[in-house]
Design a binder for these strands. Structure first.
Length: 206
DNA sequence: GACCAGGCACATC
DNA sequence: GATGTGCATGGT
């Protein structure tokens, strides 16, 4: 599946983001939201010079909410961003290098304790911001894997993740690329109402 | 106008 | 434990 998608779409070069910090912010803003809308929110933050933990935390909730408005759920995400940034400053003094040196499993547990960070957001931060070898599961992954009968419909996040990681080379590059490719398949062919016409995964079933 | 988008927390049963 | 619901903008 990986090879077919790679051949069809080419390398994806994820994650869109100029810095690891921007990737982390984007990971929260994109929850259940189209990436295009997230780009607008990040552009607003950049324009206001607010793309830093200290500045963002210093903003009123209402002001921050207004800046991230295009990303939707702006009141909820204001709280989630602030909770994460507080964690970043209090536990790591805002030092991403220090964060990178923390063992991945421990950091994952810590991230999951932050209100507003669930498994996908935590894993996105670990993989796409910090370069840790962990595979990100999202709704597209679930849809592609279950529709091709790689795993049962009752499978949850961890089961999908373990399955994928047990069947792939254990490298951040592979996990990065595969997730991006799956999102691409999801966008183009594997929406809730499947339009399998032309999908590179056609005919691959277990 | 309906449907969808790179989730998550919380309430209720 | 499983299931349901609120959160909200913007593109197709």
């Amino acid at each position: 599946m990986f090879d077919r998608m790679l051949k069809h779409f080419g390398p994806q070069h994820w994650w869109p983001g100029d810095t690891p910090f921007e990737v982390m912010v984007g990971a929260i803003l994109t929850q259940n939201t189209n990436w295009k809308n997230v780009e607008k929110a990040i552009a607003n933050l950049k324009r206001e010079g607010a793309l830093s933990a200290e500045v963002m935390l210093a903003l009123d909730d209402a002001t921050l909410a207004e800046l991230i408005r295009p990303a939707g759920y702006f009141n909820v995400k204001t709280q989630r961003l602030k909770a994460f940034l507080k964690f970043l400053l209090e536990s790591y003094r805002g030092d991403l290098q220090k964060m990178r040196e923390t063992p991945m499993d421990r950091l994952r547990e810590e991230l999951l304790q932050v209100k507003g960070i669930g498994p996908e957001t935590a894993d996105s931060i670990l993989l796409y911001a910090l370069g840790h070898p962990i595979f990100v599961i999202d709704t597209y992954t679930y849809r592609v894997f279950t529709r091709h009968h790689l795993i049962g419909e009752e499978a949850g996040y961890e089961a999908l993740q373990e399955f994928a990681m047990a069947n792939l080379p254990a490298s951040a590059d592979h996990y990065n690329e595969l997730h991006a490719l799956i999102v691409n398949v999801g966008k183009n062919f594997c929406a809730p109402t499947a339009k399998c016409e032309g999908c590179p995964l056609n005919g691959l079933n277990w």
